[in-house]
Design a protein around this nucleic acid. Structure first.
Lengths: 95, 95
DNA sequence: GCTACAGATCGACAGATGTCAATATCTTCG
DNA sequence: CGAAGATATTGACATCTGTCGATCTGTAGC
């Protein structure tokens, strides 16, 4: 991205991913999922200090942006990061 | 960031930088500055297709986030990217 | 079936954000 | 000085976003 101007479509696509990381609460949620390898939403509520609907909202935003993916396991949802999406973002910031 | 949960302060700091990249127009402005090494605001208006105040607003947001820095040269402002800030973001996304 | 729990969805509301027209500021040049 | 050009600032507006309480949808275990 640092060698040639971004096309409009590509910029919109990238912006969505960055927008997903543009909130402190969401960054913390994301880092907790990344750090633990896998965790469910209920594990995030207390450490993050937000209500359950708010956490659910944030996981949805992160998932829609392709940064995490959730697998249902009984009553729980196991969230994990999507490494390929991260690579994409790092590449976009690379010189 | 992927090995341990982010502290609240650090998350807020990072979120500001990502928020600056969370808009397609701003991403394009940023990529054009990066690609050209240095350019002034007036060079951005036509290719980006936004009004002059809007471009000015976006450069200010990017500058406030520490992603670019502007040096006044007569009537112009020469914008350049801040590589250290970019490194910081890439590091935050590194496994 | 009933209860308890994980998670999603809905509705509402305050606050932030992107955009432009109008205007102001500052700098160069004649 | 006066005119012209590059940016910045202001004001206004529509839209988006983060948050919560209330409620709905599942699933597990009794």
């Amino acid at each position: 991205m640092l060698v040639e101007p971004l096309a409009e479509g590509h910029a919109t696509e990238l912006a969505k991913a960055f927008a997903a990381l543009a909130d402190p609460v969401r960054l913390r949620v994301f880092s907790m999922i990344a750090a633990s390898g896998t965790c469910c939403s209920c594990d995030l509520i207390e450490p993050v200090g937000k209500s359950q609907p708010t956490i659910s909202h944030h996981t949805k935003v992160l998932a829609d942006a392709g940064l995490i993916t959730g697998e249902k396991a009984g009553r729980w949802v196991n969230w994990t990061v999507v490494p390929a999406r991260l690579d994409q973002l790092r590449a976009a910031l690379a010189p």
